[in-house]
């Protein structure tokens, strides 16, 4: 018993597994509650739990472009910590005399600005934030004519024409313009001249995805940049920094979530379904039949359904491949 306690936290991979499964957020609430208390209130193996938690923290918490929520949170905290100082940043840089004269005006401006930021969902003027909730997607026509379809639970902020910030996933159908169209999503910046592309930057997710359906876009990350063309998809793994470019089908100019639903099921390409299954079940899927990637399937994969169930359904529907599962590796032949 003594020996076991002397071991380093890393000697108990189970601790990390539980923490990761918990943070993934897919466990039933009752089990999640018990794990949360085991994790935070039960001091046994405190070091091991903290190490697993800190690893996830270092992976997920990062320096990023501030969103509306961060600004609101700062406003509230500033009122607590530095009462009476909320106008400080706005008056700085003016001369004292000018500041004295401008003060009433600025106060009005400040109030209008605060009101404006609270008006979530308005689309008038030069800046706005559009948010989606629940399961519904939403179409937004930007002032320059660019069409954006926002996936559920996403936020799109545009400060000026042709510069937007995205939290979540959206399809952009960009009209050509004099200025390049720029999307900031998490830690990447996507610059385009006129094209259709999909950006997936889901908060809390461990990856960023940019899929280009038409035209060309330039994607810039931290210390790297890449031009991605129609038919290419760039995947950035945020924890490892690993980048991959994969081919995608562009006959359908939209990702599956943008397509009209068919009898409650969504239509997806075989390749997309495989990557979804691989990430959902934490396995690697080797597809030795890449020519099948573009086949369209009407397919749904509910919570709790196993990988094997899904593959069996696909096999019956497609009737043109076989699969083998060996531990973490799946092969399609």
């Amino acid at each position: 018993m003594k020996n076991r306690q002397d071991k380093a936290p890393g000697d108990r991979p189970g601790t990390k597994k539980i923490v990761d499964a918990y943070l993934e957020g897919k466990l039933p609430e009752e089990l999640a509650t018990r794990i949360r208390e085991w994790l935070l209130l039960d001091d046994e193996n405190r070091a091991g739990k903290d190490a697993a938690l800190e690893e996830a923290w270092r992976r997920d918490v990062r320096y990023e472009k501030p969103g509306r929520r961060a600004r609101k949170s700062l406003e509230e905290t500033r009122a607590r910590l530095f009462p009476g100082e909320t106008m400080r940043r706005r008056t700085r840089g003016k001369t004292r005399v000018a500041a004295a004269i401008l003060l009433p005006l600025l106060a009005i401006g400040g109030a209008a600005w605060l009101l404006n930021t609270r008006h979530v969902g308005t689309e008038t003027g030069t800046s706005a934030i559009v948010e989606t909730s629940g399961d519904s997607t939403r179409q937004v026509l930007l002032p320059d004519g660019t069409n954006v379809i926002l996936n559920a639970r996403c936020a799109l902020a545009y400060d000026e024409a042709r510069a937007v910030t995205l939290d979540g996933e959206a399809l952009f159908e960009v009209v050509k313009g004099e200025k390049p169209f720029v999307v900031t999503a998490g830690e990447i910046v996507v610059t385009v001249l006129g094209t259709t592309f999909n950006v997936e930057a889901i908060p809390g997710s461990k990856r960023l995805k940019v899929t280009v359906y038409e035209g060309r876009v330039k994607i810039e990350g931290r210390e790297w940049s890449r031009v991605t063309r129609a038919g290419e998809e760039l995947l950035l793994d945020l924890s490892s920094g690993e980048r991959r470019v994969v081919a995608v089908d562009t006959t359908v100019k939209r990702p599956s979530w943008c397509l009209p639903p068919r009898a409650g099921l969504s239509t997806s390409r075989f390749g997309e379904i495989l990557s979804m299954l691989a990430s959902r079940h934490g396995v690697s899927i080797e597809n030795k039949r890449p020519e099948l990637n573009d086949d369209l399937y009407t397919f749904s994969h509910g919570e709790g359904e196993s990988l094997e169930d899904a593959l069996r359904v696909l096999q019956v529907a497609g009737d043109n491949f076989t699969y083998t599962i060996q531990g973490d590796a799946v092969t399609i032949e």
Binding site: D60, V61, Y63, P66, R69, A70, F82
Partner: peptide, 25 residues
């Protein structure tokens, strides 16, 4: 420095919020 504090606050608050939301549900 208040300015440094605010800079750090703004750039970390969103991801901190997401993490804590995952943690507390």
């Amino acid at each position: 420095s208040h300015a440094a504090y605010e800079e750090i606050y703004l750039h970390y608050a969103d991801s901190v919020h997401r993490f804590i939301e995952q943690l507390t549900r």
